[in-house]
Every structure is written in structure tokens, then in C-alpha cells.
């Protein structure tokens, strides 16, 4: 049955595309995260003293744990090493997960443009701008 706003027709196209992006983005991110975690455990780091959880119960201003990455550059450096830093891989998965909704909004934006829906293309662009602001401009916060 074709009804406005439901799963059929032009509006259904946006919903289907965004739905697929969210699903597969989530699956891929979780897979990367899980791989990093398995590598971390395989390196024996869960059983030794090298697990950097000692500051997990302290205030972050008392010193950032080595396992906490705060920039994309840290992550890239960790991934460029051999063997790959498993914590960097976990962080990559977490970042991919955090970015998945933004990719969903980008998909909506592209689809609205293709459908000629200018109002919602502009709205999607505003939302995407806010998400990018959170990722890039807030780097100096705190």
C-alpha cells in the first residue's frame, strides 16, 4: 500500500537508504571494535599489569590514561605501527560507530538532493554541519 510517509514511494527511498547505512555502519564498526579487543586480549594485555585502567576511577585531570586517544592523529599513528596497536583499532571502531549517524544524515542529504526536495536537503545539511562541528571544532573544548 502506498501512503505518504510510509515505506513506499519517494519518501520510502530515503528511509530505506538511511536504514541500510545505519545497519551496515553499525555492523562494520562493531566488527572493527571487536577485532581490536580480541587482539588486545590475545596480546595478553588483559592478564598483565599493562591494562591502563588504573586511572579509570580517577578524575581525568589527574592524568590521561595511555589507552585513551583524543585525536584522530593518535589513532592513525597507532594503526600505522606494526603490529597494529589494538587500542587504536578499538578506538577506530568506536569513532566509526560515532560517525555512522553522520554518514546516515549525509546519505539523506544526497537522496533529498536527488529527489529535488530542497527544504529537507537544507535541513539535512544543517544537521550534518552541527555533527561536523561536534567532531572537529570542539577539539579545543576542555
Amino acid at each position: 500500500m502506498s501512503v505518504p510517509g510510509a515505506s513506499e514511494g519517494p519518501s520510502g527511498l530515503v528511509e530505506r537508504r538511511v536504514g541500510r547505512v545505519l545497519f551496515w555502519g553499525g555492523v562494520l564498526s562493531v566488527a572493527i571494535t571487536l577485532l581490536g579487543f580480541v587482539l588486545y586480549a590475545a596480546h595478553g594485555e588483559l592478564s598483565g599489569q599493562t591494562l591502563h585502567l588504573e586511572r579509570a576511577t580517577q578524575h581525568r585531570q589527574e592524568g590521561r590514561p595511555a589507552a585513551v586517544f583524543v585525536s584522530a592523529r593518535d589513532v592513525v599513528n597507532g594503526l600505522a605501527r606494526w603490529p597494529v596497536d589494538p587500542v587504536a583499532l578499538m578506538t577506530l571502531g568506536l569513532l566509526a560507530l560515532a560517525a555512522t549517524p553522520a554518514v546516515g544524515v549525509l546519505t539523506a542529504l544526497v537522496t533529498f538532493v536527488a529527489l529535488g526536495d530542497r527544504d529537507y536537503a537544507v535541513i539535512a545539511a544543517i544537521v550534518l554541519g552541527a555533527l561536523l562541528l561536534g567532531f572537529f571544532v570542539s577539539g579545543g573544548a576542555g
Binding site: V68, A99, P101, A102, A130, S138
Partner: peptide, 18 residues
């Protein structure tokens, strides 16, 4: 949540092992 996750990340509040 994605909007604030970037802020949490850059502030060092996302501890991967947690």
C-alpha cells in the same frame, strides 16, 4: 548522541577499555 560523542572524544572521556 553522535553530536556530543565528538566532544566527549576530544576531551578524553571515551576510554576504549570501558
Amino acid at each position: 548522541a553522535s553530536a556530543s560523542a565528538g566532544v566527549y572524544f576530544t576531551r578524553g572521556d571515551i576510554h576504549p577499555l570501558i
